[in-house]
Design a protein around this nucleic acid. Sequence first.
DNA 1: CGGCTGACCCTCG
DNA 2: ACGAGGGCCAGCC
Length: 116
Amino acid sequence: MTNTDTSIQTKIYHTVSCVPKGTVSSYGQIADLAGLPGRARAVGYWLKRTPQNLVLPWHRVLRADGKIAFPPGSETFIEQRNRLIDEGVAVKYNRVELDKFGWKPDLSVLLHQLYY
DNA sequence: CGGCTGACCCTCG
DNA sequence: ACGAGGGCCAGCC
């Protein structure tokens, strides 16, 4: 990625890759950090069509209320839940407590976003 | 250009 | 805590 590449897709992918293991973010938070306020739906859109060969911690992105965005019991729901639990994130049914596991970006991340 | 669709989000009851 | 309703916006017809 270069600083001349300002495509929405690239911004979103880069920001998602910044979410640390063992923490969770939300579609809206990713959009905000990527400099795309109000475009949470776009985050979902690009995550959905993320190719398998691209390694992204997509499972760390939840809805604003901490819920997994997929229908409970679905294939993707179960995979996301399992991945989170493997990282030590407590998932109660379909929800994560954001007070405990919500990502608080450090200053270096915030400053980095200013360059894009 | 118009009309959907969606891994969204906020407010309100 | 939960659902409905309205707003939102990128892609894709």
